[in-house]
Design a protein around this nucleic acid. Structure first.
Lengths: 204, 204
DNA sequence: ACCTGAACACCGTTCAAGT
DNA sequence: ACCTGAACACCGTTCAAGT
């Protein structure tokens, strides 16, 4: 085991954390590398020694926020309730970091597969057919992306109402394709645990 | 009638049109006021005499693209088919102007009411309850926003498949809350023409 | 009346020069 | 080995000075 570095003056994790604080205050739109360096008490060049570009830094920030929000399905947990909770958690935590959503969505650091695969499995385990699960996944993903990227939370139209409640209602709408007493198609017997991950995770 | 100006050297409409051409080529991300002025054969200062800010120009561009896409419901036209066609038209035309969607969505120049009111009326005329129409409208709007703002069209995940077909399937999914032979709730008799606009258009 | 072109205050990024 | 601080090539925006 190599000896742990004693008191690193500046490291990527600290930079990400300080960047997230600034983003919480002013959003990504009002975030600059100079301002960040000032806050870190370092020069611009020193900051750049730890990160290749601003874009890469914002991806790291997005990844950190995502990891803080994402919680895997636990044994015995209701899959659909888990899914709803995940979506709402992402909505809230990314809403607190305005402008950061675009650095999470469709960025390689948070692979679409990391999210899409578990979601797909959960939908299958809830009795959706393969096609239904695909369409529902696309709709759910783009719906959440739209809520985050259009800054729905701060929309003039919604200001008076509770934006979070409206979003949650939409999620429920998307996930409830049929009434609870649906009998037109016998649902696959839903196991207590999620179905095994049948689909390949092609990209890390 | 005031005499028409003979050959105005530079006007806002021409600027918008040239800007749209540049956006089609490089997207909003690679669009600058200097580049635009070069293309117009004018100086930077001359361009700014016709427009207050770059942001205002991009809103005008968004409005122009929206107006080119949006077609009101015609008498005798199937409302749900009209709605699907409108969504897909917006998806395609805004997809050709990468990055412009954020200057249409939630910008005062294209009022949410201009879109949300007709959509709401159409859903009511198709037999949706008030609550169903509201939720469906929100989901549809944010779904489209997500598709446009996340640049779904150029997503790595979707590259191989037909993105447009996937989007269309999602729209259908959202608009088809129940199977065609639904009988759990007697739908309001759908008139051939759209319902009269019962809701106030508060903002122009 | 309209336009030019330089200037201002910012960016992200790089890199010789210092310690 | 690490950092500084100036520089480079861009931005959006403004405005005296020209015609």
């Amino acid at each position: 085991v190599p000896a742990a570095k004693p008191r690193a003056t500046l490291n990527a994790d600290d930079i990400v954390e300080t960047a997230l604080a600034l983003i919480r205050e002013r959003g990504v739109g009002g975030f600059s590398m100079r301002q960040l360096s000032d806050r870190l008490g370092a020069s611009l060049g020193a900051t750049y020694r730890h990160l290749p570009t601003k874009d890469a830094l914002l991806e790291l920030c997005g990844k950190a926020v995502f990891d803080r929000s994402w919680r895997p399905l636990q044994d015995g947990e209701d899959p659909m309730e888990w899914l709803q909770a995940q979506v709402m958690s992402l909505y809230h935590v990314l809403g607190e970091h305005r402008g950061l959503a675009s650095y999470v969505i469709r960025r390689p650091r948070v692979s679409a597969r990391d999210v899409a695969d578990p979601v797909h499995d959960v939908l299958l385990s809830a009795g959706f057919t393969e096609d239904e699960a695909i369409t529902t996944g696309v709709v759910l993903t783009l719906y959440l992306a739209g809520a985050l990227l259009s800054d729905f939370e701060h929309s003039v139209t919604v200001e008076t109402a509770d934006a979070g409640a409206l979003i949650a209602a939409g999620v429920k709408f998307i996930l409830t394709r049929k009434g609870p007493g649906d009998a037109t198609k016998p649902a696959a017997p839903a196991p207590k645990t999620a179905a095994p991950r049948a689909r390949r995770t092609t990209r890390r």
